[in-house]
Nucleic acid binder design. Structure first.
Lengths: 190, 190
DNA sequence: GATAAATGTTACGGATCGGTAACATTGTCA
DNA sequence: TGACAATGTTACCGATCCGTAACATTTATC
């Protein structure tokens, strides 16, 4: 996961950047700090990524490809059983969201640079649409009464858990995400 | 609501600061811009508030007192009827969260300065605890099966709606917050 | 109208940050 | 070993930002 001390600087920088973006926010950390955390320096950072915005973009792409693995893992673990896949989605999303330095930089980034005209805006928006489509399809296949509304509920819960976890930590409502989400999913299954 | 052109500069500055903090985030706006938006200047800003952090703190206190009015409005509109109060809470929270420049700076601030050691941290944490206690009590009085868990669900939904509204706007899941929350409240009422 | 307080204006200091230039060092491959 | 690419180091520029100093102007109070 975290890049070992020895691997190309480009990877080390991406890993460090993602970690620090999660911890301090995109606008809350500087490129110098990122380069130093990557055991590299600002110059090589700018040789690999033309600007801080570009680095942000690459980090988001990295996160997106991990999200791809997230979906594939669910399908592989519950082949041909949409209802089980949905439960698994809830469980994994709960883990995902309540982990120390969680991998939801997509949500964070969305919240942080939607108000500006960042080059990654469109990318995030498209991704959000893609994930929603998939989740709607999964809910429908699992037999949800109103798949769209269920996805709305799950979306709000996930984003809320992410936000709550950051600000309230392990003592907050985020730790009960799975319990709540499971209950809501059940309610839609009749 | 918004301060007219003529009222003490202190109020104009607070209003402008709250507006800009909501729009750009606490770290995303400078004191110069705040002073200019308040039709004032940086010097008088610093004469009223010793530092930007102090200004943030005062803005949060202002928002907290408005939240007080929020609660009292609910109780006044539905006297002696906890179930109706809870429904009203959902409705008003929905309005609150899906308004152009919504008044949830408390949630935003929580997310933005929890990772740092901002002087307002403790204040926000205490406030969060207070609101949770009140909501738990209301849910319990309204006859919820598991008041604590219901509050967890509502908390996640509200924070999620706030985040989602900021990044996804009127087309996102936040617009269905009331529908989802009402459904969940109903589920707990048996 | 005089006096004092509050507010406005301009300029500046120190710090941080994104980004670049010039040069030194390391590593790789023939 | 020699040559070349990749990486590291230092220094710097311009912009932004928080905060302050000094002085000018308005406003309120007597």
């Amino acid at each position: 996961m975290t890049a070992a001390v020895r691997c190309p600087p480009r990877e080390r920088i991406i890993d460090a950047a993602r970690d620090l973006f999660r911890k301090h926010g995109i606008k809350g950390i500087g490129v110098d700090a990122i380069a130093e955390a990557a055991s590299s320096n600002k110059m090589t950072l700018y040789r690999h990524f033309g600007s801080k915005d570009d680095l942000v973009f690459v980090c988001l792409q990295e996160a997106a490809s991990e999200a791809e693995a997230f979906w594939e893992g669910i399908k592989a673990a519950n082949p041909g059983d949409p209802r089980a896949q949905l439960s698994d989605w809830v469980r994994r999303a709960g883990e995902f969201v309540t982990v120390e330095h969680c991998n939801c930089e997509l949500l964070d980034a969305a919240a942080q640079l939607m108000e500006s005209d960042h080059p990654a805006r469109q990318f995030i928006e498209d991704l959000r649409g893609l994930y929603r489509e998939r989740l709607v399809e999964l809910c429908r296949a699992a037999g949800a009464a109103d798949a769209e509304l269920l996805v709305d509920a799950l979306t709000l819960l996930v984003e809320g858990a992410r936000t709550n976890w950051r600000s309230a930590g392990p003592g907050g409502a985020a730790t009960r995400f799975v319990k709540v989400a499971d209950m809501i999913v059940d309610d839609f299954m009749r």
